[in-house]
């Protein structure tokens, strides 16, 4: 999938978000929608101009960044004001499996937290991550994960006295 198609897909998705948001404001009173409506309309407007702009045949985007504006053009207009490096052209086919893996790791971690609670999930996730990536030998990986979990437990549960969530499976382990 070309970069432009991907950009159009994202922009299309955002158009749907803005449109749905606008629709939802219809059920609100005049005070409650006083600011959300113009903001959603503005966002929708900007997005439509962006879609037209990114699909222009010359491929030129309506670009302006902070540095160009502050420095009277001393800096290239593509400089990244947020300190992030210039966008590197990524090979989508190459990065997509890695992206799926990253999302998978995150989903698995969240799943573990919901099932077992944060502390047990941290131990299992870090141990599994070390084992899967092979960064540490299995025993060392589990030991490092255990020490990290202990440190986090001491910090959050003991130090900050945070009432921990024990997961949806907790009732199974409770004494009857």
């Amino acid at each position: 999938m070309s970069r432009r198609t991907q950009e159009n897909l994202i922009a299309g998705l955002l158009v749907l978000v803005f449109a749905a948001y606008l629709l939802m404001t219809l059920s609100l009173g005049p005070n409650a929608r006083l600011v959300p409506v113009p903001i959603a309309l503005l966002g929708l407007g900007f997005l439509l101009i962006q879609i037209v702009s990114q699909n222009r045949s010359d491929g030129r985007e309506f670009q302006l960044d902070l540095f160009a504006s502050l420095t009277a053009g001393a800096v290239s207009s593509t400089a990244d004001a947020s300190g992030e490096e210039e966008p590197e052209p990524r090979d989508t086919r190459e990065s997509f499996p890695r992206e799926l893996q990253a999302a998978g790791f995150l989903a698995a971690f969240i799943g573990l937290i919901l099932l077992l609670g944060p502390i047990a999930a941290v131990f299992l996730f870090t141990s599994a991550f070390f084992l899967v990536t092979g960064h540490f030998a299995p025993l060392k990986g589990v030991t490092v994960a255990g020490l990290c979990t202990l440190a986090l437990y001491l910090l959050f549960a003991v130090g900050l006295q945070l009432q921990m969530y024990h997961g949806v499976l907790a009732p199974l382990f409770e004494p009857r």
Partner: peptide
């Protein structure tokens, strides 16, 4: 609003 990574509109 001018702190845009490339496109001002985005």
């Amino acid at each position: 609003a001018t702190f845009s990574e490339g496109s001002l509109l985005k």
